[in-house]
Every structure is written in structure tokens, then in C-alpha cells.
Design a protein around this nucleic acid. Structure first.
Lengths: 330, 330
DNA sequence: CGTCGGTTGTTTAACGCTCACATACCCTCC
DNA sequence: GGAGGGTATGTGAGCGTTAAACAACCGACG
């Protein structure tokens, strides 16, 4: 701020009205005569005046900012829709990530910091810990919040993807293709998503009366998928399908399968989860499950804004059904 | 903010000191007696007091926030390093994207909005228009800014990747592999990066005395790469190497090549640009050029903070050399 | 013609903090 | 013992805005 910016008073002086009238104009209050409004508007334009948001926040307790807190620093795919929707509604997005060594402490610090900034609402993203409603209420200090895409504690507002439904579709697809021996590379059990998906795989194998194939826990990363797939293949090549915790792991696994001289899908069918951009263009294209992040952002932000408008808005707990995308890898 | 938060005065009263002393403590000013400091600190903890950032900003004109403005809504890869580095330095990151129909207008609006929020600095990202220094100075209203990864106007601080150097390495690699007939799928000419990369390809072919192979402009997307590759292949299959504007296009192109019954790299070598996560795990793994976003974030933010500390800090114009990563696709 | 409701505008007081300045105190040194 | 210098604390103003109370005007109506 090297140059001093014009203030409400400067505009008022130029327009020959009181500062309060100017305030009414910029807040589009009804009780201002048309020609006064115009005169004020002209002065605003002439001075290129912009209201000081800090002063505004100080008195209103609002900042027109939503805080995204991401527990998985490198998983930014859902961010663009969030930014876009928020911006449509006149809100800015501030993003912070919680680093792992001490998630809980980091998270608290971040929340303190954000409430100090008068943030209007929180989008909690990819949480790997299940925080009880009471704690979240306290941390958010009255600001509305919504948990996105990871399984929330009781009473916590959330917009989720139906992990179970998605994985069921995937498994049914494999059953329909006639696979009897199915292996799995799950995601890390620190993530709720990974645990849920894994549970479905094993339950459905059991319910179908099939003997579970070999499985191993990995880390949702390409490299991890690659290494774990090699490991599986070195132990037991009897399986005809491989379920991967996400698309990343699937990419690594497909490569491993190729390296040991087998072919996808002829020898082993591979399926992923997420439908990342590249999934359709892998060789072969990957069968996977698509999650609609735009819809998630829309509902999540919609809830926050509704709650802001009317604190009595009931909590939401919405579940978006992911969509099976069948491609050549299976 | 349903519950009223404690203020400086509440802390002061509890600790039995003046508000100013509390202010000194939270700003770690040196001239406070140890036992006073402790007493104040205890009161802060007892009340769980957190300074109101809006009030602070109002008077200091600072917000401890850096604004990222991204001109390519879906290119968020460089974001995590930025968030991480900023957070280390005690700054928050706010992200906005400029949508295309009317970039210039959108951009102005965004800048007005951000300066109104007392943002401390700007990271301008993937700009597809070359804005002159004077205009940027004016839009930033005195806040420091740095342009990241796209070619800036004269006098504009920037941290860039050496597009020319990177592409030269790629081309030399292809020459070394003995390729004489080289095709190209460039990025969209609306992006400076795409134009630069394209120019290098054509210049180097010319300098090497080679007749340029067929080339076509695409959009940096997987689908675009796929379609354009099919187009090239339908016209002229004489080329033995294909240079793609980025990794995304390369993914699509490789798929197209496979579909027409040719093989990578045996029939056609393919190279990309960016070294995205998946590049190493494609089939075959993609030869490409790696850009160090962490280093970019470090230098960019370092400059902003230095400038904030001392406005006399000279402008930076740094160029980071990308690194050729040779894999099986070439 | 006095009163009343509605509209338009002004005045004053916060909001919670930092900055500049004033004050009080203690130590040292000639 | 008084001048000078450092350290520790307190006081008061003001940052730019909104919210609430208040004044002024205008036409209408009994």
C-alpha cells in the first residue's frame, strides 16, 4: 500500500453527501434518491474508490471468504470447481493444507488463524481423521462448515460420494465379466475412503461365495501401485482381475503387469477409482468410477451460504452417487 | 460469529496490564518484562484469545495473505508448493481464477477486490496476456507482485522456466536418436508458452537443415492431442518422431498412434513437456521435460516477502532450467 | 393547519487493534 | 545528586467502515 487509497469520506466530499449515504449506495440500500445515487456512483468511479474490506470485516464480522482446509496437500483436483462456484456467489477462496506429522495440532492452529480472519465458512476436505461435531463446532467458532468427500462424525454436515455404491458397481461389473479370482491393492488405511472401499471389496467377494484373492495395502500413489502390483504378481498370478484403490494405483499396477509380460485386460483386468483426466487415455483406457466434484462443490457451498443466511438451516448430509465408467481395461 | 470473542482488552483486564502491553506480547516486541509476558500469555491461553485480523489489517494495511491469480482454472499443479511455502512463512494463500470470455475485465475486477482485501502480494499465474508493467503496478496498487511461469512484459518481476532451453534439450535428444522427420502438435497459440515452444521446434529443425514435418495447433488437452494426432496420421505417416506441446497432448497422441496400429517408440517416438505425475507410468513411459514448481514457488514468494520487507528490493527476473527426462517413449 | 407516515439525509458511536507519544522507573556516571 | 539513557508500561487517537438514532423534508389527511 504505497499510495493512499480514497475512502468513503473522500467520495462523500466529492459527491457532496454524507459518508453514510455513500455507504448506502455501495450496499445497495433502497432508501437513496436516484439522482443522489448516480452522483455518488460517479464520484466512486472518478476516484476509483473500492471499499476497504478490513474495515468492513471489523464491524460486520464477515469477510466474504470461505476457507478450504485440505488434509491431502497434493489432491487439488476438486479445487477448481470450488473456486468457480464460490466466485459466482461473490466469495473468495482461501486454501490451506494440513501437514501430516501432527494433523490435529496443525488443524487447530489453522482454525484459530482462520477464525481470526473472520472467515465466513469452512470446507473441510479429505479429512483423514473423524472429528466429532462438538469439537468442530468449537473450532469453527460459530462459522458454518461442511465436510467434503470423507466420512464425517455423527451430526457433521457433509457432502459425500457413495464409496460403497461406487465400489459395488465396480465389483458387479467384474462379476458380470465372469471374474472369479479378484486381487486388490487398497489405499492406505489411514484414509477412511480407503478402508470403506476395501471393506466393500472383501464383503462382496464373501457374499458372492468367492474366495478372496490376494490383497495388499498401498498409498494411493502411482509408484506404490506399481511396487505393490509387482509384489502381488510375484506371490500369486492366479487372479484374473485387480481392483485398485484409486486411478493412480491402477496406473502403476498396469505398468507392473506389462513389465512381467502379462497383458491388460486379456490376462488381468484392472479397475481404478476416481476417473482422473488421464484415465480415459491410458493404454488400455481404464475402467473406473467417476465422482462429480462440481456437484459436490455446488451443494457444499450452497449449504454454507444458506446457513450463513439463516442459521436455522438444517444440517445436510448428502450423498452423491458416483458413476461407473466402463473402458477397455476390464 | 455467534459467540462473542475475547478482545485485547479482556486479556489486558485479566492480566492486570494495559491493552498496549498485550499488543506488545502478541507482536513479540522486546520491551516486555519476562514475568509480565508470562502473565499475559497465561491470560491469552485462559481466554483462548486470538487477535482479530480484520482490526489488524485495518490499521497496518497488511493481511498476511498472498493472492494467487490463475489464468488457467484447471492447471492447479503448481498450487501445493505455493501453499506450502507461504504457510511456512506465515502467509495464507487466497486463490482466484480468471475466466476466459473477458479476461481483462475479470482481471481488473479481481485486482480491485484483492486490493480492497489488503492482500500483501500477488502471484500471477499462467497469464495468457502480456500486461505491461505500468498497468500491473496500477492494478496492484503498490502491493508487490510476481509473474510465474509465463512470459512477462519488460520490467515485470518473474520466475520463469526456460521454455527455450527445455525444448532445445528435447529436440537435441531427438536429433541424437537419429530422427530426421519430426512432427509437432503444439499448444494453443493464445498461450505464450505454446508459441515459444513451437518457435523453438521449428527453428531447430531449420537450423539442423531438416525439412519440418507436419504440425498442427492443439489445446494442451488429452482429447485435443488425440484428435490432432489422428489428423496428422491421416495426412502423412512419414514422420518418426512427434513433439507434443505438453504431456497431456502426448497422452492423447500416444493413444491415437496405437489405434492406427503403429507403436511407440518403434514406429514413432513421442515426447511431451511438464513431467506430470503420470508421465513415468504411461505405457511406454514418456520422455519429457521436468519443471521444478517447488523452486519456482520458493523464489517467487521469497521475492514478494523481500519486497514487502524492503520496497527497494530490485525486481527479479529468474529463469529456472527445466530438466530433460528421457524415458522409453523416444 | 397541525399531525402523521414515509422518504432521504446526517450525526454519533462503535468494531478491535496499532502507533506515537507520554510517563514512570532504574541504573550509571561525572 | 542531578543529568542522561535505557527499559517497562500506560494513554489516547485513529484506521475506514456499518449500525442505530436522529433530524429534515414532503405530501396527505382529518
Amino acid at each position: 500500500m504505497s499510495v493512499k487509497q480514497p475512502t468513503l469520506h473522500d467520495v462523500a466530499r466529492l459527491a457532496g453527501v454524507s459518508h453514510q449515504t455513500v455507504s448506502r449506495v455501495i450496499n445497495s440500500s433502497p432508501n437513496v434518491a436516484d439522482d443522489t445515487r448516480k452522483r455518488v456512483q460517479d464520484s466512486i468511479n472518478a476516484l476509483h474508490y473500492r471499499p476497504n474490506q478490513a474495515a468492513r470485516s471489523l464491524i460486520t464480522g464477515r469477510s466474504q471468504t470461505l476457507q478450504v482446509i485440505d488434509f491431502d496437500a497434493y489432491y487439488v483436483t476438486p479445487l477448481p470447481p470450488i473456486i468457480s462456484i464460490a466466485s459466482e456467489k461473490g466469495y473468495k477462496i482461501s486454501v490451506s493444507t494440513v501437514k501430516l506429522p501432527d494433523s490435529v495440532h496443525e488443524f487447530r492452529k489453522l482454525m484459530d488463524d482462520s477464525t481470526a480472519r473472520q472467515v465466513d465458512g469452512f470446507l473441510l476436505f479429505a479429512m483423514d481423521l473423524t472429528v466429532p461435531k462438538e469439537i468442530l463446532d468449537q473450532l469453527c467458532r460459530g462459522a458454518p462448515y461442511v465436510q467434503l468427500g470423507s466420512s464425517p462424525a455423527d451430526g457433521v454436515p457433509a457432502v459425500l460420494f457413495d464409496q460403497v455404491g461406487g465400489m459395488r458397481q465396480l465389483m458387479n461389473h467384474l462379476f458380470n465379466m465372469g471374474h472369479k479370482r479378484i486381487a486388490e491393492i487398497s489405499g492406505p488405511f489411514t484414509k477412511v475412503d480407503a478402508r470403506q472401499r476395501h471393506a466393500v471389496v472383501q464383503d462382496m467377494l464373501h457374499d458372492a461365495g468367492l474366495e478372496p484373492g490376494p490383497w495388499v495395502e498401498s498409498d494411493f500413489q502411482i509408484l506404490g501401485g506399481y511396487e505393490k502390483a509387482l509384489e502381488l504378481l510375484s506371490i500369486d498370478r492366479s487372479f484374473t482381475a485387480l481392483v485398485c484403490g484409486n486411478d493412480q494405483a491402477a496406473v502403476g499396477a498396469m505398468r507392473a503387469i506389462n513389465e512381467v509380460g502379462l497383458r491388460v485386460p486379456d490376462d488381468i483386468a484392472v479397475v481404478g477409482f476416481d476417473d482422473e483426466h488421464f484415465a480415459a487415455y491410458l493404454n488400455p483406457p481404464l475402467t473406473t468410477v467417476r465422482q462429480d466434484f462440481l456437484e459436490q462443490a455446488r451443494r457444499g457451498i450452497g449449504y454454507i451460504l444458506a446457513k450463513l443466511e439463516d442459521p436455522e438451516t438444517p444440517m445436510i448430509r448428502e450423498v452423491i452417487c458416483p458413476e461407473l465408467v466402463v473402458r477397455k481395461s476390464s
